[in-house]
């Protein structure tokens, strides 16, 4: 499987990853090389094999529902690049998608 530049552009957009000039071509080549190796997976017949998402047999353990102190508002906001009135501050959201 090779990856075309348009696919790199699409995937980068899905991941909200800005690319520099010329990077679409660079990553198209590199990712195609990696996928070339990964394509060997298709050699295996996995028709009747269940997928594994996690490997240890621990099923939905729950802790007791005991309230305990967490971060207060100031602590939660302490790392924010911008904040206002106790909220995270973001730029305008109403621009059209590129």
């Amino acid at each position: 499987m090779t990856l075309a530049r348009e696919q790199v552009r699409h995937v980068a957009w899905l991941a909200r990853l800005g690319l520099e000039e010329g990077e679409e071509e660079f990553y198209a080549q590199q990712l195609s090389g990696i996928l070339g190796h990964i394509d060997r997976l298709q050699q295996l017949d996995t028709e009747d094999i269940p997928p594994t998402a996690q490997v240890v047999e621990v099923i939905n353990p729950l802790r007791d529902d005991v309230p305990e102190p967490g971060l207060d508002q100031a602590e939660a906001l302490a790392g924010a690049p911008a904040q206002q009135d106790g909220y995270f501050l973001v730029k305008a959201i109403q621009e059209a998608e590129p």
Binding site: G18, V90, A92
Partner: peptide, 30 residues
């Protein structure tokens, strides 16, 4: 310098992540 929210995402992630991280994010997203 981002003017919109989506620009904040795109520019911050472009500047903040190095090449291997970008490669893996794109591979995984794909």
């Amino acid at each position: 310098n981002a003017q919109t929210l989506v620009e904040t995402y795109l520019r911050t992630r472009r500047q903040g992540f190095g090449p291997e991280v970008r490669r893996r994010i794109m591979l995984g997203t794909y």
